[in-house]
Amino acid sequence: MLEVKNLIVKYGGITAIQGISLSIPRRQIVAMVGANGAGKSTTINAISGMVRKTSGDIVYEGKSLPTRPHEVSRMGIVQVPEGRKIFPTISVEENLILGAYVVKDPLVLKQNLERVYSLFPVLKARRRQGGGTLSGGEQQMLAFGRALMSNPNILLLDEPSLGLAPKLIIEIFQFIEKLKQEGLTILLVEQNATKALSIADYAYVLETGRIVAEGSGKELLANPIIRKAYLGCLDDPE
């Protein structure tokens, strides 16, 4: 569905991404794991158009993706950014309405709003509050809700579990699997590699801007070299 071919991203003389190719098939969860600075976020931002790619091609359903971020999101490829990037000064509901910026039909907007509120009732309870007053977990729900408001086809999730309590992390990963079952295609970037691989259909391991390993989530989790080098596990696979 979404193909990244030979992506190279340079900024300020540094080559952040040195030729990455990814394939993200329809209705699957594809994960990118790797240490800080491996280029995971840069890859997602290059797909979103938030950083300019130096060369390479990003193809969506047979066509090259536009390069400006608002055009990419209008194609149904929507990013949930690292650190949630909730708008703190507008209300929770306005954050959600902004998520449906490209939805022209007010009825569809209303339906989507009801759907997000039924997914996350706490957002409905807090809908008049400023986005900045929410807790970290609630902000992550709002970030997901905001992305779902436009009926996206592909979700690009950048570190969704970052900074959350362990119990919430489990819920977030369950939620991502639920989104897949509902028909969404997902590219998941995570430092919490073990968790990400356990739900991924396919995964890529990145190191300093290159893919150093790939395979199904299970294969990578079972690979002792990967476990040791990238997952920080010294024990045998359970």
Partner: peptide, 24 residues
């Protein structure tokens, strides 16, 4: 209006609204 909400959102962060399809 959505445009008005986008202007207010951009007041705290001008880059992120583009992810929602807003032309900065």
């Amino acid at each position: 209006t959505k445009t008005g909400i986008a202007i207010r959102a951009a007041s705290s962060d001008i880059h992120t609204p583009a992810l929602m399809g807003v032309n900065t």
